[in-house]
Amino acid sequence: MNNALAIASVVVKELYRRKDFYVLFVLTALITLLMGSLNFFNDDKIVRYLKEICLLLIWISALTIAVGTTARQIPAERENRTIFPLLAKPISRGQLVAGKFLGCWLACGLVLIVFYLFFGVISASREHQWAAASYFQALWLHWWMLAVVVAMALLGSVVFAAPSSNATICLVVILGILLMGRHLNQVALQLAEPMNTVVYAIYFALPHLELFDVRDLVVHNWDPINWLVCGGATLYAAAYAVFFLFATWLVFRRQPLA
């Protein structure tokens, strides 16, 4: 664990010393504030559209940071050859994978805290209330979804040669799941065999990332989700993250570095 945490701390340092996060945060803040300054029929209490735009930007930024940061971790270590002095220390490849995962995931957590605080301030400034439980659930579920995304991108980084191709494939898969995941069972019903079984199998096998997207509930001020259900979703994400990490280790442990 010590080695994994040491590596994670370097990844977190990398995140806050690079410009990516700041650029995305400033863009999110600027667009949100710009949209907030628009006057719709002289009504300054309209807030839901602003919450929706802000959350959409947060999701885009978080996904970009998560996939972008993770996809370059191991390839950058190889390209800059820092993987050699690193693995020449008493550290296993499993610990390296765990450290990279932990670093990227914790970095995403920090990013989300900053973004959601901004979101909270924006919505509170108009609604004059703070739906703390809903916001916390949104952040928590978002963070766990990113655990799956980070683990998936890490697997991609040991399978695909170029970080750009890995990032592109990951983003396409993630967006596909977010948009289509929930409806694949409906699609399957309209297909003839054997495609019906194939699509249904994909539906059950893929990680349903859309479960963690509770933006509609937050935007429209629905009640918080049952905490047990929230816990179930956390376990679901943890299971998939562990699965992807294990697969990453399986591929990476015998991979020649030279």
């Binding site: 019903l189 859309e210 989700i225």
Partner: peptide, 14 residues
């Protein structure tokens, strides 16, 4: 709901 994922997912959207 057609399956457990369908049933479970209904907690996460209106």
């Amino acid at each position: 709901p057609r399956d457990w994922i369908d049933r479970f997912s209904r907690h996460f959207y209106p």
